[in-house]
């Protein structure tokens, strides 16, 4: 069997292929374990790079988060790479005091404006930076975010939403009148990592909970889930490439 060139696989992973080329690669990946493994390796390296770059951009924020457990500073990017033991210790402490803790006000998310600031992740948990660490740990842990999200403006009339998600996640994608595209998570999905750049939103680690995708009517929005195109909205119409739980004119609900 002839294997796929690594550049072709990378182009596929980066959604640079369309039409026949994309179909060809997908067909091959369905039968070739070797190329599938190669694709996984490329994706893994890409995720490692993304995590690393987020760290470089805001290492102190992560350290603060690490020290107090929760909440993150507003705008801080979330990383999943944490040492297991200290994290567990923080968790145990947080759980032990959570019942007595006061939950700050209702969850809100802060929309990013203007567009380039969209790379910041919005947490529903209000910051409590002024509190001493000892108290902020308990109170903040109790106030684990119920909702988090990010919004961006389309780039050249296009938006790509890339999800790496578990099958327990419930996704609702709908056409929105807003000119901005947004992805908003509630429940356990609010723990996912959000990464945004012009015209692109990536959500990693959304294993369960609910995710809402708002697709601006005036833009072409492509939603990619776990490496495959799932749906596309163009001129207010949704084109579906994979099974959905339910479908209406301007809204689709599905599990990855």
């Amino acid at each position: 069997m002839n294997h796929m060139d690594e550049g072709l696989l990378q182009a596929y992973a980066d959604e640079e292929l369309a039409g026949h080329a994309r179909t060809t690669v997908e067909g091959h990946l369905g039968t070739c374990l070797s190329c599938h493994a190669e694709l996984d390796e490329l994706r893994s390296a890409s995720e490692e790079l993304t995590r690393g770059l987020l760290l470089l951009s805001d290492p102190q924020a992560e350290i603060d988060q690490y020290a107090v457990g929760w909440p993150r500073r507003p705008g801080a990017k979330r990383l999943t790479r944490m040492a297991a033991l200290p994290r567990a210790a923080v968790l145990v402490l947080a759980l032990g005091t959570a019942a007595a803790a006061m939950i700050p006000g209702s969850p809100v998310y802060r929309l990013i404006n203007p567009a380039p600031r969209a790379a910041q992740v919005e947490s529903a948990a209000p910051p409590s930076a002024a509190q001493p660490i000892a108290t902020s740990t308990a109170a903040a842990a109790a106030a684990a975010p119920a909702e988090a999200g990010v919004s961006i403006e389309p780039l050249n009339g296009e938006v790509r939403v890339v999800l790496r998600a578990g099958s327990e996640l419930r996704v609702r994608a709908s056409i929105a009148s807003s000119p901005r595209a947004g992805v908003f998570a509630t429940g356990a999905a609010a723990q996912a990592r959000f990464d945004a750049s012009p015209g692109r939103i990536e959500v990693t680690g959304a294993e369960s909970g609910d995710l809402r995708i708002e697709m601006p009517r005036g833009a072409v929005t492509t939603v990619m889930v776990n490496g495959r195109d799932y749906l596309r909205s163009t001129d207010g119409e949704i084109q579906l490439f994979a099974p959905a739980d339910s479908r209406a004119d301007a809204e689709v609900t599905f599990h990855p």
Binding site: E6, G7, Q10, E16, L42, L49, T50
Partner: peptide, 29 residues
């Protein structure tokens, strides 16, 4: 990482667009 497409990256580093996938794959590795 900033969202540039292959065609734009090719233009910036002065290579053919068809080679960008390979360059990225190798750089990632």
């Amino acid at each position: 990482q900033e969202g540039f497409r292959y065609g734009e990256i090719a233009q910036s580093v002065d290579v053919s667009a068809s080679s960008v996938g390979t360059l990225i794959a190798r750089a990632l590795k």
